[in-house]
Computed example of a mutant assay.
Amino acid sequence: MNKTVMRAGWSRGVTELRQSFTNGGDLFNHFFWPVLMLVVLFLMRDVSFGDGEFELGTLVLPGILGMNAAMAMVTMSQLLTADREDGTLLRAKATPHGTPAYLVGKIISVSVGVVVDLAIFLIPALFIIPGLRVGSSEAWLTLGWVLVLGLVATLPIGAVLGSLFSSTRSQGLLTLPIMAMIGISGIFYPVTSMPEWVQGLAQVFPVYWLGLGMRSALLPDSAVIVEIGDAWRHLETVGVLSVWAVVGLVLAPIVLRRMARRESGSTMAERREKALQRVG
C-alpha cells in the first residue's frame, strides 16, 4: 500500500472522526454502551465466583474490554454496508486509489472510536472494581498489544462481513451469531464453567482470546486458576489473533475490490427503488 493511499486514508479517517465526535447521534452511541456496561459491572461488583476468592465483577471487567474491541468488526460491517447503500463507496471508487484509501480511513476512524469507547468505560470502572493490576507498566503494555492485535484481527473481518450485505436492514442477521459468540466466550462468566465442547468452540473465535488477553493484563496472577489450563497462554493468543488478522487482511481488499466493481449508479437506483417499495 503506497504513501498516497495512506495519506488519503489518514485524511479520510480524521475527517470521519471529527464528524463522529461532533454529531449528537454518534456521541450518544459512544456513551451508551460504555455506560450500560458500567451499570452491569456495578451490579456484579459484590458477586463472588466459585469459593468466593474472586469477585465476578473483577473477572468480567477485562472481558468486557475484549468484547467491545471485538465488536468493532460489527461496527465496521454496519458502516461499510451503510456507505455502500448511500453511494459513499461508489464515490470512493470513482477517485484514484479510492477503495483502498476508503478502507484505511475506515480502519483509522473505527479503531480510534473503539479506543475512546474503551476509555469511557475503563476509567470510571477502575473506581468501581478493586483488585485490578493497574499500577504495573507491564499490565498496560500487555493491554496495548492485545488491543492492537485484536483490532487488526477483527476490523478486516468486519469489512468482509459488511460486503455480504446490500442494505442496513439485513445487518440484523449478524446480531444472533455475534451474541452467541459472545455468550460462549467467557465474557460474563469464566469459560471453564462451561462444557468442554463449548470451551473448544469458543477458542476458535477472536472474542475469547481478546478477553483472555485483557484478563492477563489486568487481573492478578492468582486469577489464572479460572482459565483453561491454569495459564494466560500469551503465545496462543498471539497465534490465534494473528491467524484471524492474516485471513482478514488477505480477504478484505479482494472482497472490497470485487464489491466496488459491482457498484454502479444503476445498482444504487435499483436498491433505492426497492427500499421505497418496502416503505410504500
Rank of each mutant, 00 (worst) to 15 (best):
74 V>Q: 14
30 H>K: 14
69 A>W: 07
124 P>A: 09
51 D>H: 09
167 S>Q: 12
28 F>M: 13
242 S>Q: 03
268 M>S: 12
93 K>A: 09
132 L>A: 01
85 E>L: 04
249 L>A: 08
174 L>V: 13
277 Q>P: 02
3 K>I: 02
107 I>A: 09
28 F>I: 13
34 P>K: 08
268 M>R: 15
86 D>N: 14
29 N>C: 07
272 R>A: 11
19 Q>W: 03
63 G>W: 11
159 A>S: 07
77 S>C: 08
172 G>D: 04
121 F>Y: 15
15 T>F: 03
215 R>Y: 06
95 T>S: 07
266 S>K: 15
146 V>P: 05
73 M>S: 09
55 E>N: 13
222 S>H: 03
9 G>M: 00
87 G>D: 10
92 A>G: 08
233 R>V: 07
225 I>N: 00
170 S>Q: 09
112 V>T: 06
199 Q>K: 11
16 E>V: 00
222 S>P: 00
32 F>P: 09
148 V>S: 02
280 G>D: 12
272 R>S: 10
32 F>T: 10
66 G>N: 06
118 L>F: 01
80 L>S: 08
239 G>D: 09
51 D>R: 05
118 L>S: 07
261 R>E: 13
63 G>I: 15
161 L>S: 09
157 I>N: 05
154 T>V: 15
226 V>S: 02
187 I>H: 08
78 Q>P: 02
162 G>N: 00
142 T>V: 14
216 S>L: 01
95 T>N: 03
198 V>M: 11
154 T>G: 01
170 S>C: 03
264 S>Y: 09
96 P>K: 13
66 G>E: 11
27 L>S: 05
266 S>E: 14
77 S>E: 05
156 P>D: 06
218 L>V: 05
87 G>V: 02
219 L>I: 00
144 G>Q: 03
276 L>N: 15
227 E>W: 00
29 N>S: 11
56 L>E: 12
39 V>R: 00
100 P>N: 04
279 V>E: 15
180 A>N: 09
187 I>D: 10
180 A>M: 15
23 N>G: 14
257 R>N: 13
248 G>Q: 06
171 Q>V: 03
206 P>T: 01
220 P>V: 03
130 P>L: 06
109 S>G: 09
107 I>Q: 00
58 T>D: 08
180 A>I: 14
35 V>T: 13
64 I>P: 08
184 I>F: 03
247 V>L: 14
236 E>N: 03
106 K>P: 04
75 T>F: 02
